[in-house]
């Protein structure tokens, strides 16, 4: 396939995604967390199905599963069908999540579990586990696009460039990891500052991108691991150096505490 055609395809894709993002932004109501992540818990069946499809038909499936079929034959069908049958978990637990989510205002599962067991430690551990297990999955997405662009252009767009495109366009893997400390500590640590958040996300993300592009694995650790460590250290360190935040942080956490107490959570 001609390189120009592939570049044009990538360009059109980025353009469409950007337009959709801006349109979605205009259609957002309150701009709250629930509005952003859960569409005010009012997503219809069709958009819900499209969202599920977008999650499922990723590079993991389009590149990984095709490769697995090529390498292992019909056994890949068994793998995929068993994976697909896991949808029953959504059918069974989905309505339960929906009901308690609406009732108590949960957005994430870690939030729900932390509240349910009355333990911050549970929420933190679950959130961390989610992130850790998403690291390889996210990395596969990046690698998949890199391989695709490399393969379809006969190496004219090398694997690295393909990966850079995805890092820039999506930045899901790095972004996901380095925002963890900021998100987690936002609810629990009054001393955390905006400067700490910015430093951890920006510099942590840059570190992940650098390690990925340079192909470095210091002490054998993956880029996401180092990005995460850097994000935690930067967030805590910078927050301590900066002046303690006034007003909003106390109000935010105080409100959370009262809300949780009202709901019987410890």
């Amino acid at each position: 396939m001609s390189v120009g055609l592939v570049w044009a395809g990538v360009g059109i894709y980025v353009l469409i995604v950007t337009v959709v993002a801006f349109m979605a932004r205009g259609g957002m109501g309150s701009g709250s967390l629930v509005d952003y992540f859960l569409w005010n818990r009012d997503m219809g069946g069709i958009v819900g199905a499209l969202s599920y499809a977008a999650t499922t038909y990723s590079a993991f499936m389009l590149v990984g599963l095709a490769g697995l079929t090529y390498a292992g034959g019909v056994g890949a069908l068994g793998f995929e069908m068993v994976y697909f049958s896991g949808l029953v978990l959504v059918a069974f637990f989905g309505p339960r999540f929906l009901l308690v989510g609406k009732k108590f205002g949960y957005v994430t599962t870690s939030e729900m579990l932390g509240d349910r067991y009355g333990s911050r430690a549970v929420a933190v551990v679950v959130a961390l586990a989610n992130c850790v297990f998403l690291i390889p999955y996210s990395a596969v997405q990046l690698a998949g696009v890199g391989y695709l662009l490399d393969g379809t252009t006969g190496g004219a767009i090398p694997f690295l460039a393909g990966t850079v495109i995805v890092v820039l366009a999506v930045s899901s893997s790095a972004g996901l990891v380095v925002t963890v400390p900021a998100i987690v500590r936002a609810f629990f640590w009054r001393r955390g500052t905006a400067a700490g958040v910015l430093a951890s996300v920006v510099l942590g993300g840059a570190l992940v991108a650098f390690l990925e592009l340079a192909g470095l694995r210091p002490l054998g650790g993956a880029s996401g691991v180092w990005g995460f460590v850097a994000a935690v250290v930067l967030y805590v360190g910078v927050s301590f150096v900066m002046k303690a935040p006034e007003g909003k942080a106390a109000e935010f956490i105080g409100y959370l505490k009262r809300g949780l107490k009202d709901r019987g959570a410890v």
Binding site: L77, G78, M81, S85, V88
Partner: peptide, 21 residues
């Protein structure tokens, strides 16, 4: 063989999902 078996398994899994929801 296994191919047909997994196809039928998938149909059964869809049926179970339908029964639940």
């Amino acid at each position: 063989g296994a191919f047909l078996f997994w196809v039928l398994f998938a149909l059964a899994a869809i049926g179970v999902n339908f029964a639940i929801v």
